[in-house]
Computed example of a mutant assay.
Amino acid sequence: MADFDSQKKDLMKEVRSVLDEVEDLYENASDNGSDQAKELKDQLRKKLGNTKSKLSDLESTLADKARATAERTDELVREQPYYAMGIAAAAGLIAGIMLGRCKR
């Protein structure tokens, strides 16, 4: 789970970086262009705003889902601790068997 969170954070950071670069390019673009260039610039501004909004919504949704999953997992472990310990023990046994076979 920590690896997923790390990858998610890296991806979001990269997307934000790209959006910031596009926004900088937009802001630094010359306003002396043709009417068509101005129209394209306005469209780009609108799409950039929409993309940033959607990215924020996605981040919020992912955080809410991760929080809900963690709460539900915690609930299940508290309700059935022996079941959770059994699953953890079985996973450890399987991992031990597989590692033992790999060393041969």
Rank of each mutant, 00 (worst) to 15 (best):
D42T: 05
E27G: 01
A29S: 15
I87Q: 05
D57C: 01
E14D: 15
L99Q: 06
R72L: 09
C102T: 13
I94F: 09
D57Y: 04
Y82H: 08
V22E: 02
D10F: 06
A84S: 14
Q7P: 00
S60Y: 02
Y83V: 10
G96P: 00
L76E: 11
A37G: 04
D24Y: 03
K47D: 14
G49W: 03
L76F: 08
V22C: 03
A90E: 05
V77H: 00
T73G: 10
N28H: 11
K103D: 02
R67G: 02
V22K: 03
G96H: 01
S6T: 13
K47H: 13
L62Q: 14
E14K: 13
K52S: 07
A66R: 09
D5C: 05
L93M: 10
Q7S: 08
E14C: 00
E79Q: 14
L99P: 00
R16M: 07
L40M: 13
D5W: 02
L40S: 08
V18T: 09
K41E: 08
T69C: 01
A37R: 06
L99W: 03
L40A: 15
R78N: 12
N50E: 15
C102H: 11
M1P: 08
G96A: 15
K9C: 02
S56I: 01
Y26M: 07
S56M: 08
A88Y: 00
L40D: 11
E75R: 06
E39C: 00
L99I: 05
N50R: 05
Y82W: 06
D57A: 15
K103Y: 03
D42N: 15
S34E: 04
K41Q: 10
T69I: 09
E39S: 15
G100V: 03
S30W: 05
S60I: 00
K46T: 12
L25D: 14
T51F: 10
S30T: 13
G33C: 06
E27R: 13
G92K: 07
E14Y: 03
T73I: 09
K65I: 06
L93Q: 12
A37Y: 03
A68D: 14
P81W: 01
P81A: 03
N32K: 11
A2C: 01
D35K: 10
A89T: 12
S34R: 07
L93T: 10
M1A: 15
R101A: 14
A89M: 12
A68R: 12
E14P: 00
A88T: 10
E71S: 10
R16I: 01
K41M: 09
E39T: 09
A70L: 10
A63N: 14
D42R: 12
S6Y: 02
D31K: 08
I87Y: 04
E59R: 07
Q36S: 09
L58M: 04
A89H: 07
M98K: 13
K13S: 13
A90D: 09
D5R: 07
S17R: 11
S60W: 00
E23K: 12
L25R: 11
K38V: 01
G96T: 12
E21S: 15
G96F: 09
S30M: 04
V18R: 05
R16A: 06
